[in-house]
Design a protein around this nucleic acid. Structure first.
Lengths: 195, 195
DNA sequence: CAAATATAATTAACACTGTTCACAGCTCAA
DNA sequence: TTGAGCTGTGAACAGTGTTAATTATATTTG
């Protein structure tokens, strides 16, 4: 009985790994059922024995990529002091990650999720992803500046919306025109959030 | 020679109108070449005599919808006094428009644009759409509060990113959970922008 | 060990998608 | 009236996600 579960999770793993590789290299445009299955070494129909549809499979990758992104950010902000300095560094590292992997930005924020299943949970995970990474520093900042939690929540919201909005415009609408301008606007926005 | 141009723009109009109707009612998911052509009363192949591809056609609708949105906002903010009050009212009306027509939000901010043609121009149009509607009130606000233009530009950016980011999360990731919460967060963000 | 059964993987098929191309029908100048 | 060019068209192609029927494999039973 346990073997069965083991085998099933292994099979799922093969498909998920194939999907992850495609997403990382080609983004969502490279995803197709036949593509994934070929990379996983199985027929395209086999995929449907383990996943309801291709979107469910794609969204199984979210958790993995979040972990990867978190590790990436941790490495980049190493050595920064707690509070504002690290909050800014995290924000920049977060933006840089999605600039490097635009396909993963698409997956996190743009791609439509399937109606049922674990979509609600995935959505919450994505919504509060940045909050979780920043939590220790928000706490530090709140204590130091003696700010109440409502104010901090508002700042968290502001940061989340600003970074996601900026990335959406830059990646999908090429605005601002170039990277330098983008970074300049980003700096302005970040500086203002923490006065 | 002029007849030719007239006929061509008329034909384009038929296809654009069909596309607009589908976008308004069903959103991007309802768009297909054969669908559009059927509604326009022509064969799907005819479409390619007037547009490079279906995305070019879809993006021809942007200007029309921007005008529609602008009129919608104008009606809603009628009677509001210039400055902060009207800026807030415009922001809310802007959000409400896209809540009513999520397909048009998709078209404006999410759908990939074709590589060439008038895509750069379209992108700029979309990026500064909200700025244009708000311009008179930003001017009024700047003069009244004696704020320099750099500061105002930062506020414009903040408003644009915040509203778009919020809509992206709410429409695509169902976060916040419900409309009441969404509006509450929106109010908080708007109130803070203008102190 | 062999046969029957259950399970897993596959191929074939369906209904779509966007796009291209050869061709029919029409308009208009020579 | 003839011929050239323009316009609209269906067939066809290569792709998509998904499902059902069928084959191959693994497991259980006699």
């Amino acid at each position: 009985m346990n073997n069965k579960l083991l085998q099933e999770t292994r099979m799922k793993r093969y498909f998920i790994e194939a999907t992850r590789n495609i997403l990382r290299s080609e983004g969502l445009k490279g995803i197709s059922v036949r593509n994934i299955a070929k990379d996983a070494g199985y027929s395209y129909a086999t995929l449907y024995n383990y996943f309801n549809d291709v979107r469910d499979l794609v969204f199984e990758c979210v958790k993995d990529f979040q972990h990867e992104c978190e590790v990436d950010i941790s490495n980049k902000v190493e050595g920064k002091s707690a509070g504002i300095e690290r909050l800014k560094a995290i924000s920049k590292a977060y933006v840089e990650y999605f600039l490097e992997y635009p396909g993963i930005f698409e997956l996190f924020y743009i791609e439509k999720m399937s109606a049922y299943g674990n979509s609600k949970e995935s959505a919450r995970l994505i919504y509060h992803f940045l909050d979780r990474i920043c939590q220790p520093d928000w706490d530090f900042y709140a204590q130091k500046m003696k700010l109440n939690s409502d104010f901090i929540e508002r700042l968290k919201d502001q940061l989340r919306f600003t970074l996601t909005g900026m990335l959406l415009f830059y990646l999908n609408r090429s605005s601002p025109d170039n990277y330098a301008e983008f970074i300049q606007v980003l700096e302005q926005q970040l500086n203002y959030i923490w006065e």
